[in-house]
């Protein structure tokens, strides 16, 4: 049993994949000699050498293009985009090329690659280094979208992402890099598309992802201790593929749903979940689905502003109470 941070689990997960398969290599900016700006890739260059751990120029299109081309030949690249916000400068490669080439080629070409990227707020980095962009990739057919909430999920989901024959965008949450967990076994695999129940309860279903899943779990503990409310907390783990069956089963049991997301409100992933629930579980609902989101604003930088923009544990608790007790 060892205690592992989310940060350390990233480099360990990559290393485990690279040890298992010579086809796996890793490319990104400052990932090798520097060990990553979040220190999430420390030790990889030393273990695998420059041929498999490639420090790239600040050329996000060239990085993802090279990863895509290599994947087209059967290699299994892991490419890092330092901040998910930078996906905007290589979105053509992601959304037009990586996502669509399998379909357009009538299945002649597989693109088995992983794009890892640091996502989300909490670091007071301002509007261009803090966004939660998982909904951007969710709306593009051809991309799988994974966002782990804890070290063991990083390990298990990265293993599956690297082995996956399709492109996977792997959103790591910046505010979780220091998150610790006791881990018994590190070489694990978690199938992509299976949600995880973080807390059991019969009164309400709270659905979250990444940092918001952890905050929902904290909220559930407070709701149980102080307000006698028992909440189920579903950590989606991936948006595509989506574990709709787990959501449905839970909604049928509780009848109340709250989604918690870090996306700005318009077209955040909670809207799609809400739509699916109304389509599939309308008769089981005891009230409207409530969406807790970041408001539809760019993220501000100052402590008090950012903290009051991203959904907090307190906000989740209050929204649940308001919903169930009308307070």
């Amino acid at each position: 049993m060892a205690q592992l941070t989310y940060r350390a689990s990233v480099s360990l997960a990559i290393a485990q994949s690279m040890r298992k398969d010579q086809k796996v290599f890793f490319i990104g900016e400052d990932v090798g000699a520097a060990g990553g700006v979040f220190k999430a890739t420390v030790g990889l260059l030393e273990e695998f050498g420059k041929e498999r751990v490639m420090d790239a120029p600040i050329s996000e299109q060239a990085i993802l293009g090279a990863a895509m081309g290599a994947a087209m030949t059967g290699l299994r690249p892991i490419a890092e985009i330092m901040f998910s916000d930078f996906l905007a400068v290589c979105w053509d490669i992601v959304a037009n090329q990586i996502a669509k080439t399998r379909y357009m080629s009538d299945g002649q070409i597989n693109i088995p690659l992983v794009i890892r990227t640091a996502n989300g707020g909490g670091s007071k980095f301002g509007a261009q280094h803090s966004q939660s962009l998982e909904n951007w990739s969710m709306m593009i057919p051809g991309l799988k979208v994974v966002a782990p909430s804890c070290p063991s999920d990083v390990l298990g989901l990265m293993d599956s992402a690297v082995k996956d024959p399709d492109p996977v965008i792997f959103y790591e949450h910046k505010s979780l890099y220091a998150f610790k967990e006791e881990i018994e076994q590190t070489d694990i695999s978690i199938p992509i598309g299976e949600a995880n129940m973080l807390h059991e309860g019969k009164d309400i279903t709270i659905i979250g992802l990444a940092l918001m899943a952890q905050r929902a779990k904290e909220a559930a503990l407070i709701l149980k201790d102080k307000h006698d409310i028992n909440a189920k907390v579903i950590d989606l783990r991936s948006l595509v593929p989506l574990d709709l069956q787990t959501i449905k089963k839970s909604v049928i049991e509780t009848g109340h749903v709250l989604t918690v997301e870090e996306n700005p409100r318009l077209c955040g992933w909670g809207a799609e979940i809400s739509s699916l629930i109304s389509e599939h579980c309308f008769k089981n609902l005891k009230g409207p689905v409530t969406r807790v989101t970041t408001p539809h604003v760019p993220l501000p930088s100052a402590d008090i502003l950012e903290d009051n923009t991203i959904p907090s544990v307190e906000l989740i608790v209050n929204e649940v109470i308001k919903k169930l007790k009308g307070e």
Binding site: G65, A66, G69
Partner: peptide
């Protein structure tokens, strides 16, 4: 422009 970067990838492979 996209395919210049992608062609680098097959060359890299």
């Amino acid at each position: 422009g996209a395919h210049l970067t992608i062609a680098n990838g097959t060359a890299l492979a």
